[in-house]
């Protein structure tokens, strides 16, 4: 009994890490990109919700969930560009603007999304990787959504892109040292606008995962702060796309640990379990930060460091 409890628990953690972690992965990659350019976008929470609504609505209206994902990304791109453009104006604070964007994005999604709460939209397919097993639980746990693999691939592509491509170098240069970038003839504002826009696109896709796959419905309580949590996650991952992948899985597992423990009969303190990711991130920050230097890996122009 104890052994089977343990295996159920571990299975739930593994499956939960992937299921719950995928939206984290997308949003954190988006935020990572934005922050690499030297700007922070707290509005990804609003973008995520808008993406979730748009994705669901378009999937329902068009019958194609993939079109929904694209539309969600497009909606995210638009809101991301708004953030990018307006925060490029002098004296506009990106942190406060992000919070205003949360209000606006969720408001927009709730307003336009009223008509799409009731209908059922076609869902994204998943890839059954567990066919080898006779255990339905294993099979279910290894039913992995395509978006997860896209996200994993994206993490590696971004990792390579930021290091190995000219575009990545320019982005990092703009994010680390704006003046040098200007001296080389790159317009920092333009680069950041693109980075924030692409970041918004990814956050929108993360939202579409929520509404079109897991938990797979659209309603106003769909997001429980995944967008804001992703900001912490990026710091936890030290601005490394591949670390974002591991961190997203870890945060996903942390989200799954409360229900999983209760399923095997341990029911104490579920609120405290829900706070694990925050405690972990704070601990990492406290351990790795020093007053005389900023977080290693942090882009120098990031408003968090000034």
């Amino acid at each position: 009994m104890v052994e089977s409890d343990l295996s159920i628990f571990l299975l739930a953690l593994l499956a939960g890490a992937i299921r719950v972690g995928t939206p984290f992965l997308f949003v954190s990659l988006g935020e990572c990109l934005t922050e690499k350019g030297g700007r922070i976008n707290l509005g990804l929470e609003g973008i995520l919700v808008t993406g979730a609504m748009t994705g669901y609505a378009v999937s329902y209206l068009s019958g194609s969930p993939w079109l929904g994902v694209l539309a969600a990304g497009g909606a995210g791109l638009c809101l991301g560009l708004v953030h990018g453009v307006i925060c490029s104006l002098p004296r506009v604070n990106d942190i406060a603007f992000g919070i205003a964007l949360i209000l606006f994005g969720t408001g927009l999604a709730f307003f336009l999304g009223k008509d799409f709460i009731q209908p059922s939209a076609p869902m994204l397919p998943s890839i059954p990787l567990g066919g080898w097993s006779d255990d339905t639980r294993v099979r279910s746990a290894l039913n992995v959504n395509v978006l997860f693999f896209i996200g994993v691939a994206l993490a590696f592509v971004l990792h390579w892109g930021l290091r190995g491509t000219r575009w990545g170098l320019v982005l990092r240069l703009v994010g680390d040292h704006e003046d040098s970038a200007q001296a080389l003839g790159y317009r920092a504002a333009g680069v950041r606008i693109v980075a924030t826009g692409v970041g918004g696109f990814l956050a929108g896709v993360g939202g579409a995962y929520l509404s079109l796959y897991y938990p797979g419905s659209w309603n106003e309580g769909l997001s429980s702060g995944q967008g804001l949590m992703a900001v912490a996650l990026v710091i936890f991952a030290r601005w490394q796309p591949i670390n974002c992948l591991w961190a997203a899985l870890l945060f996903g597992a942390a989200g799954a640990v409360g229900p999983a423990l209760q399923a095997i009969g341990i029911g104490w303190g579920y609120y405290l379990f829900n706070a694990i990711p925050y405690v972990l991130t704070l601990a990492v920050m406290v351990i790795t930060c020093r007053p005389d230097r900023t977080l290693s890996g942090a882009p120098g122009e990031l408003s968090l460091n000034r």
Partner: peptide, 16 residues
């Protein structure tokens, strides 16, 4: 949600 949108627009504009 109308109020949310109005608030969001107001603060976006105030900050911009």
């Amino acid at each position: 949600a109308t109020t949310l949108i109005l608030q969001g627009m107001l603060f976006i504009n105030l900050l911009a």
